[in-house]
Amino acid sequence: MAPELFVQYLMAGVTYGFIYAIVAIGFNIIYNTTGIINFAQGEFVMLGGMLAISLNGLVPLPVAIALAVAITMLIGALLEITFIRWLDRPSVLRMIIITIGLSILIREVALHVWGESVRALPYFSGNEITTIAVLGARVSPQILWVIGACSLMVGTLSLFFRYTLLGQEMRACAANRMAATLCGINPRNMVTFSFMLSAGIGALAGCVMSPITSTEYSIGTGLAIKGFTVAILGGLGNSMAAVAAGLLLGIIEAFSVSVLPLAFQDAIAITILLIILFVRPHGLFGRKDAAGLKEF
């Protein structure tokens, strides 16, 4: 393989990898505070992109993105408050079905609001033919936007969970809900925050990826499956490992294009998911007995 082509595949892989990692971290944040997997996680990404595209005509791009993220966070919080907050220790099966129902509803609303058409945000800098040289290959600057924004999110999140009071409270809640309650933390509020937070990062990822990947009402499920694959690869609940796992999956997918038909690209992630579930359900990087402990 020519070196330029190699770098191009690599950059594409890293770009997608970061997006998968963000979706996976969204899963993890909610999983850590509630023990549930939010099947509607991919829909937040779609909503972020779609809202920003609609707002972009009315306000400048940065404002549109900020608004889109804010609205999606609000939606995340509202969903949690309306559908999840008041349930009394629901079973896992019930939560799976409820979040699947939510993802269908969000998707159907999106379909009726935005239709089936494929849309995209404009490139943040330059346009679709602008390229810059990276390691001798020519890639779109948007790739750098995605990588930059996602790394920034990962960094900010880990600082947030380590050093802010709210972040520490959320971690406390994840580690031991009972003890956290006794310390005066309201776990229900933490759950709402975790929905807002994962909606927010999903939406931002949806915005930065939109110029490259385009956005349509149905992208959520695919992203959710891949994000989940990554979350499992890294070990459910472990967000730093999710970044590594995301990059791994993104790069494998990118290089697979050179050997497999495009239509089977999704099948790769799922095959990896199935294999990993069968042989190492606690993840590539997790230890088996540590899988029970859910630290961020």
Partner: peptide, 28 residues
């Protein structure tokens, strides 16, 4: 054999993954 060893979310996702693969194969 392997899938039914899983529980809860894992089982849901694994069977969902199987469904998507069949869909993709039919489509491609």
């Amino acid at each position: 054999i392997p899938v039914l060893k899983l529980k809860g979310h894992y089982l849901a996702m694994a069977t969902l993954g199987f469904g998507i693969i069949i869909f993709r194969v039919a489509l491609a």
